[in-house]
């Protein structure tokens, strides 16, 4: 296994282009990202520290840092970085690599469960159907939650990409195999 930086470039490169990911090395620790970070006001997230950790190959430390998940992907730092570091995209790729190794909280994995069951991260319930009717809308929108054969296409994607295994989804229970023990971040 190469360095974390090499992994970031390889994994994120196909989606964003390698040069996009390579901007990580341009970070000079000026702190403009951290100064404007709305999360950093309220949480331990220090964006420039994450980048230093990534540059220094502090793989386990960064994967286990709870603040890795406190970035809302607001792109403020991405827009302001004077060195052109593609900050938010680098953070999302670091999260991808962490999640692949099981660093994913139970509440986060539950979002995956909702999508696997209904095609929606926020599914509809009976009360909302009544509200829709009162507004003159169809009680259920024509989405994956309404049409089984359409939902099966989305489920097929999750099987192909092995996202189901990633969140430890049990197809018999249509739920997580276990909700205890998972990382709580």
């Amino acid at each position: 296994m190469g360095t974390l930086y090499e992994e970031i470039v390889a994994y994120g490169g196909e989606v964003f282009g390698e040069e996009h990911m390579e901007t990580l090395l341009q970070c000079v620790q000026c702190g403009k990202c951290t100064g404007g970070c709305p999360s950093g006001r309220n949480t331990a997230l220090r964006t420039r520290k994450l980048f230093r950790m990534a540059q220094e190959d502090m793989r386990e430390e960064i994967f286990n840092a709870p603040e890795l998940w406190f970035c809302t992907t607001c792109f403020t730092c991405y827009e302001r970085c004077p060195k052109g570091v593609k900050t938010t995209d680098v953070i999302r790729i670091i999260r991808n690599l962490a999640a692949k190794e099981g660093h994913m909280s139970v509440p986060h994995r539950m979002i995956g469960v909702y999508v696997l069951k209904t095609g929606h991260a926020v599914p509809i319930g009976p009360d909302q159907m009544k509200i829709r009717e009162s507004l003159g809308l169809d009680s259920q929108p024509p989405t994956t939650q309404k049409y089984k054969e359409q939902l099966e296409q989305v489920q097929d994607i999750f099987r192909t990409t092995q996202f189901d295994a990633m969140i430890d989804f049990d197809w018999d229970k249509m739920d997580l195999r276990g909700k205890e023990g998972g990382e709580k971040k």
Partner: peptide, 17 residues
């Protein structure tokens, strides 16, 4: 007809591109 969750960019983009 048949559309699903977009899926949520910050969430699913963070889990698995």
């Amino acid at each position: 007809v048949g559309a699903s969750c977009c899926p949520a960019p910050g969430v699913f983009g963070s889990f698995d591109m």
